[in-house]
């Protein structure tokens, strides 16, 4: 991305930095790598677990119910047709620009029973999203500029609209839609308020504000 920054030595640091500026911790646990899309300047911190292997297998085999990671390099050679079909459109997790997934967070695509099969659905996370440490995320979609506090559980198929804020330790129930600019908290989470008009606005231009641009924070992580 920004070429002004000198290329980091990838052999030394705690993070592997890709060409597009993604920073992936060496301690992050990522399964099903081909099914994961990182848009750039995305940070995956230590002990983050990305379950890219939970992906819909196409065409659905009628007998086997185990969801195999068809994109595993070892099995890719043997299961050629499935890997070619899935490489077209299967995305398990997609994460937007300048989004930070803090330590020990699990991202798991949601799944539901459909015609006798447990069918996974993709998990989409937008830009400038901060997901705090120790969260479990099973949302269907998280829009831009969302702030999720530490130790939250986002239930299956929940949708977090833009500029909403999930306070620390909340459990968003499955299927809940958090409206834009809402503050949710509690177990189960309910809307407890609205963010201020200035949420995410950094008038001073220095540092980080909740819900605001995360580029500076991303730059500081190394």
């Amino acid at each position: 991305m920004s070429s002004s920054r000198p290329a980091r030595k990838s052999s030394k640091g705690d993070y592997i930095e890709t060409d597009s500026g993604n920073k992936v911790s060496r301690k992050a646990l990522i399964t099903g790598t081909p099914n994961i899309t990182l848009a750039g300047r995305t940070v995956l911190m230590p002990d983050v677990h990305l379950r890219g292997d939970i992906v819909r297998v196409r065409p659905p085999p009628p007998t086997t119910t185990t969801s195999t990671t068809s994109l595993d390099p070892s099995s890719a050679a043997t299961a050629k047709p499935s890997s070619s079909s899935s490489s077209q459109s299967t995305t398990a997790i997609s994460i937007g620009k300048s989004t930070i997934i803090a330590t020990s967070t699990i991202l798991r695509p949601p799944a539901r029973l459909l015609r006798g099969l447990l069918q996974p659905y993709p998990l989409k996370i937008g830009e400038q999203v901060l997901i705090g440490p120790g969260c479990v995320v099973e949302s269907a979609q998280i829009h831009n500029h969302v702030h999720v506090g530490a130790r939250c559980v986002l239930g299956a198929f929940s949708v977090l609209r833009e500029n909403c804020r999930v306070l620390e330790g909340s459990c968003v129930p499955a299927g809940m839609v958090v409206p834009p600019g809402a503050v949710v908290a509690g177990r189960p989470a309910r809307v407890v308020g609205e963010v201020g008009e200035g949420f995410g606005v950094d008038g001073v231009g220095e540092g980080w504000v909740e819900g605001g641009e995360l580029r500076e924070v991303v730059r500081g992580i190394r």
Binding site: I100, A102, S104, L130, G132, P133, W208, E210
Partner: peptide
């Protein structure tokens, strides 16, 4: 030389 600010809690 940056402004003293408190960053987000990232759990490190």
């Amino acid at each position: 030389g940056g402004m003293p600010t408190l960053g987000p809690d990232l759990g490190t």
